[in-house]
């Protein structure tokens, strides 16, 4: 099992990105997803301490006409959330992969990372959509 001592980013088919660094994984939604949603007006974040399995509804992101669930990409426990999104949800549109991160998970099973796509694979995947 690989241990990522440098931050490395992976992707899900549901358009979440996951940046893995040691035991922690930072999660957000991709540019493709925020663009499809349109102007984001509200983000509902999980509570610190909450635990999720892959595919669980972890957060909600809303535009004016749509509400989408953000799924947990791996097993993990929430150790930090991006509280700034509550006041400035537009950050997800403006900076989806940096300032617009949703939460940090403590990784339960590092082996799950292998099931995610790397950047090239995700890019190829988006082109098929």
């Amino acid at each position: 099992m690989t241990r990522y001592t440098q931050p490395t980013t992976f992707y899900t088919e549901d358009h979440e990105w996951v940046t893995v660094h040691n035991d922690l994984a930072t999660v957000g939604i991709t540019h493709y997803a925020e663009n499809a949603l349109g102007d984001i007006v509200f983000v509902e974040l999980p509570e610190v301490g909450a635990e999720f399995a892959p595919g669980d509804d972890m957060a909600v992101v809303e535009s004016v006409k749509a509400a989408s669930d953000v799924y947990a990409p791996i097993h993990g426990k929430v150790v930090e959330v991006n509280g700034a999104l509550s006041d400035k949800p537009e950050t997800v549109n403006e900076s989806p992969t940096e300032k617009g991160w949703f939460c940090v998970l403590e990784i339960k099973d590092g082996a799950e990372i292998a099931g995610l796509m790397d950047e090239a694979a995700y890019k190829a995947y988006c082109e098929t959509l």
């Binding site: 509200f42 809303e62 535009s63 004016v64 006409k65 749509a66 509400a67």
Partner: peptide, 14 residues
């Protein structure tokens, strides 16, 4: 009309 994502025509079963 605003905050419509609470409503049935968008959120449906949720």
């Amino acid at each position: 009309l605003t905050l419509s994502t609470r409503e049935q025509h968008i959120r449906r079963d949720k």
